[in-house]
């Protein structure tokens, strides 16, 4: 009874917010509606008794993916009025793609045969003696271990690809090498000098060479122990 009411409430909010994701004018609102949709999907999982999947959905999608999504969308400076003008032009293409997809889905679904025991398994998705997390783990790490590892490898490749694409050495960055800083001894950087009164240290000629074309006036009086930039 309560579960049924809950199902309809969450399903309606899920569909409504999914629609809002597409139609909202402001992209940030779109992402926030997407988050709402994720939440309701998690609630539906909970009603179906899949508590592990519900929590993982929230942790992975809402807690990590959508945060970065929101991050990016907020940083974008896109003129959305301009973007919307293209809608008339691209709508037919989108429609064709959608129709092809629908047709293919129809083909797949009409040719789909359920295994004889599928209905029985669907009625009780988890073994009664185990919690759903343990049941999932038992299957995932034994029967499907290779597929699981494969999925991990694909993600790893994607990650390395993203790093390779974005990592570029510009040579202008000043890196902090904490190990080197900690290993540095006073003798390497600090010189104690007895300077004659009024002579100054310019005459002795121990000033370090300036790093590149730095403003001369500002740094030329720096003492040797301030040499390493932090």
């Amino acid at each position: 009874m309560i579960a049924t009411i809950g199902f309809y409430v969450f399903a309606v909010i899920l569909l409504a917010s999914a629609t809002m994701v597409v139609t909202a004018r402001n992209p940030v609102h779109s992402v926030l509606f997407l988050i709402l949709a994720f939440f309701n999907a998690a609630a539906l999982f909970l009603i179906a008794g899949a508590e592990f999947l519900a929590m993982i959905l929230v942790i992975v999608y809402v807690g990590a993916v959508a945060v970065l999504f929101l991050f990016v969308v907020m940083m974008l400076d896109v003129n959305f009025a301009e973007l919307r003008e293209g809608i008339q032009r691209y709508a037919p293409v989108g429609l064709v793609v959608g129709l092809i997809l629908l047709f293919e889905l129809g083909l797949v679904l009409t040719g789909w045969h359920f295994a004889p025991s599928a209905a029985e398994i669907r009625m009780s998705p988890t073994p009664t003696a185990l919690s759903n997390t343990a049941a999932l783990g038992n299957v995932l790490y034994t029967r499907y271990i290779f597929l699981f590892q494969l999925a991990g490898l694909i993600l790893l490749v994607a990650m390395i690809g993203a790093i390779v694409l974005t990592l570029r050495e510009r040579g202008t960055a000043r890196r902090q090498r904490i190990g080197r800083q900690n290993a540095r001894q006073p003798e390497e950087t600090l010189a104690m000098l007895n300077v004659a009164v009024g002579a100054g240290i310019d005459e002795i000629g121990i000033l370090r060479p300036l790093p590149g074309p730095a403003p001369a006036g500002a740094e030329s009086h720096a003492l040797p122990h301030a040499a390493e930039p932090h």
């Binding site: 988050i35 592990f52 929590m55 993982i56 942790i59 809402v62 807690g63 945060v67």
Partner: peptide
Amino acid sequence: NVGILYLFAISSLGVY
């Protein structure tokens, strides 16, 4: 049963 995951989920939402 998934209390710790619930806590982790909630604490990861704090950023919003």
